[in-house]
């Protein structure tokens, strides 16, 4: 098989990929550049006399932000799975009446611009005192993932044989037991995909962070980068170093969970 595949396509593929990923390379390159070399013209295409100063700055200044983002990301995963998995079970296997309408509403929900949701949440949070809090951000961020997650779970669970439920019932297991003992373990891959995207979207969120958490002490990493850009535009190596660190989850996920990523893109096809 492989022998027949033309090598020039591989070469061309490498060129295309290199072009596409060049900005990513450039980010890494700048993050390793000495501050004095940042304004060189032309810039160094490779990190000659590289420095880790940028990363040192990240460690000194951005650790709390990274921790905040991690907390928000994990909180979002838990909340999303807690709501979406039972809902998928209800829609996909138990065939809740009105599921068509509900599915439709979830599709519509994905089309609502985040900026609109942000204003609505702001208006609510102002009164409830939830501005600048981590739970507030977790809830707001989860609105990106929940409709996607329910649709994903539903699609998967609808494909499970319903006889299985009946068999469970014959054995004396109730709906709850069937859910936790049979359906959830079988849906492991859906859960991984859901968790992955819920985390990534919460981690990457900028709109909710910049609106609902403008004056908080604990800011997520995206806002950390944004404030950085606003404050000291001279230290682009530090900004890019933060950006590299903020990209780590995406890189890890791509390496460890590539097939789940691909499954998620085609399944929900949602990103703001």
């Amino acid at each position: 098989m492989t022998a027949k595949r033309p090598w020039w396509k591989t070469v061309l593929g490498l060129v295309f990929t290199a072009l596409m990923l060049f900005p990513v390379y450039w980010m890494v390159n700048v993050s390793l550049t000495q501050t004095s070399d940042l304004r060189r013209n032309p810039p160094n295409l490779f990190p000659v006399n590289l420095t880790l100063d940028g990363y040192e700055a990240v460690l000194q200044q951005q650790l709390p932000a990274l921790g905040t983002s991690l907390m928000i990301g994990f909180g979002c995963v838990v909340l999303t799975v807690l709501i979406a998995a039972p809902a998928g079970y209800s829609l996909g296997l138990l065939r809740l009446r009105g599921r068509t309408t509900l599915t439709f509403l979830l599709l519509v929900a994905q089309m609502i611009p985040a900026v609109v949701m942000a204003m609505g949440f702001y208006a609510i949070y102002v009164r409830l005192g939830l501005l600048n809090t981590i739970p507030g951000l977790i809830v707001a961020n989860s609105t990106i993932a929940v409709p996607f997650a329910v649709l994903l779970y539903t699609a998967f669970m609808a494909g499970l044989p319903r006889e299985m439920l009946q068999a469970a019932r014959v054995d004396g297991a109730g709906a709850w037991r069937a859910f936790t003992a049979i359906v959830l373990p079988l849906s492991r891959n859906s859960t991984i995909t859901v968790a992955l995207f819920a985390f990534l979207w919460a981690w990457s969120d900028f709109i909710f962070a910049s609106t609902l958490n403008r004056n908080g002490d604990l800011i997520p990493i995206t806002l950390g980068i944004f404030n950085y850009i606003g404050n000291n535009t001279t230290q682009w190596n530090a900004i890019m170093a933060t950006a590299v660190v903020a990209s780590v989850p995406a890189a890890v996920l791509l390496i460890l969970a590539q097939r789940y990523v691909a499954a998620g893109v085609t399944a929900g096809a949602v990103k703001d």
Binding site: L200, F206, T222, I225, A243, A246, V265
Partner: peptide, 22 residues
């Protein structure tokens, strides 16, 4: 290579946007 093409989609927008800015 096709998987590598996913990278821009997975990066936080602030990362991509600030890289392009620079």
């Amino acid at each position: 290579l096709r998987a590598m093409f996913l990278v821009p989609w997975l990066l936080p927008l602030i990362v991509s946007a600030s890289t392009w800015s620079w």
